[in-house]
Design a protein around this nucleic acid. Structure first.
Lengths: 174, 174
DNA sequence: GTCTATACTAAGATAGAC
DNA sequence: GTCTATCTTAGTATAGAC
C-alpha cells in the first residue's frame, strides 16, 4: 500500500481533470491518455470505451460520497457550515469528481444525474435531520447549489460565503 | 411585421433548443439545420461557422436581457419574487437562451461567460438597490442560481420555490 | 437565399505486436 | 499490461449549381 495511484486511477483522474477544465467533449480518448501519460491503447485496456470511463468515474464518486456524508455528520462546526464550505470548490478529489459528474449530467447522461440525485438526497437528509425544518434545509441546499454553480461557471465571488453566513446567523442557523 | 420568424431566427431557435436538450456537442450543423427545416448549406449561408452561431445567439441574449431587467424593476410583486420566479425555467425564449448560454459558458467559452456575467451583474444591481443589503442580495442571487442549476441538471423540486418564499418571509423580505 | 455534393479533420474503437 | 497502426464514423466547412 504505497501512495502510488494505479494506472486505472490515474486515467480516471485525467478524465475528470479534462472534463472539469473543458467539458467532456474535449475529454477525448487521446487527450485522456496523454494527460495520464499512457497510450490510447493502454487506456482502452482498462476502459473498453469512453462510456466505460464514465461508469468508472461514477463508481468512484459513490464511494467518495459515502465518506463525505459521514464527515458532514461529524463536522466540528456542524453540518450546515460543512455543507456550505464544501459547496465551494476547494480543489479536492471529491470536488473534481463532483464537478465532472455534474457536467456530464448536464449533457443528458441519466446515470450521472442519478448519481448526483442520490448524493443530494443524502446531503438533504443530514441537513433536515440537523435543522428539523424542511424549508430551511431546502433553502440551504439551494444556496449550496448556487455557490457550486457560480464556481463552475467562473462567476465565483470570494465574499459570497461570508454573505451567506451573515444571513444564516439572522435566521439563528449558525 | 408578421408573426413569422426569419430563417435566421429559426436557426438560432433550433441551435438553442439542441444545446439545451443535449449539450452543444450534439448541436451539430446537421442537427441544427434539420431542426430548423433548412439544409446545411442554407444554415451556412446565414452563419459561416458554428462559432458564428454562438455569436448570433449571444447578441440576441443581450437584447433579451435588457428587456428582462426592465421587467424586473417594474414587477408587481417586487424584483425579488420576480427574480426567483424567473430563475425556474418557465420555457420562455429567454430561459432557453439563458440555459443554452450557461451550457456553452461551462464549455469554457469566454464570450458566453462574459455575457452571463453582465446579466448577473445587472440582476444583482436591481436586487441590491431594492434591498439595500449586500449580504441579502448576494444570498438571494445564490438561491436563484441554485434553482436554476437544479432545473438544468434534472434535479428540480416542485416545492423548492415555496420553501424559499417561507424562509424569505422570516427575513421580512417578502 | 437555399440546395447538393464533397473535401477535410478529429474522434472512437479494433487488431495484433511486444 | 502497454504499445503502434489502422479502420470507421461523424462532424465541420467549402464549392458551386439552381
Amino acid at each position: 500500500m504505497t501512495g502510488d495511484r494505479s494506472t486505472r486511477d490515474r486515467l480516471l483522474d485525467a478524465f475528470e481533470t479534462l472534463v472539469v477544465g473543458a467539458g467532456s467533449r474535449s475529454a477525448t480518448l487521446d487527450a485522456v491518455a496523454a494527460e495520464a501519460g499512457v497510450s490510447k491503447g493502454g487506456l482502452l485496456y482498462h476502459f473498453h470505451s469512453k462510456d466505460d470511463l464514465v461508469e468508472g468515474m461514477l463508481d468512484r464518486l459513490r464511494a467518495q460520497g459515502e465518506d463525505d456524508t459521514v464527515r458532514m455528520r461529524q463536522a466540528p462546526n456542524g453540518p450546515v457550515d460543512f455543507y456550505l464550505e464544501t459547496s465551494v470548490d476547494s480543489g479536492s478529489d471529491f470536488d473534481r469528481a463532483l464537478i465532472a459528474t455534474a457536467r456530464i449530467a448536464q449533457e443528458s447522461d441519466p446515470r450521472a444525474s442519478a448519481a448526483l440525485a442520490d448524493l443530494r438526497e443524502a446531503w438533504f437528509g443530514v441537513l433536515q435531520e440537523h435543522l428539523g425544518d424542511d424549508s430551511l434545509a431546502r433553502t440551504i441546499q439551494l444556496i449550496g447549489d448556487g455557490l457550486y454553480f457560480d464556481d463552475t461557471t467562473g462567476l465565483a465571488d470570494a465574499r459570497a460565503l461570508d454573505h451567506v453566513r451573515a444571513v444564516l446567523r439572522r435566521l439563528d442557523v449558525l
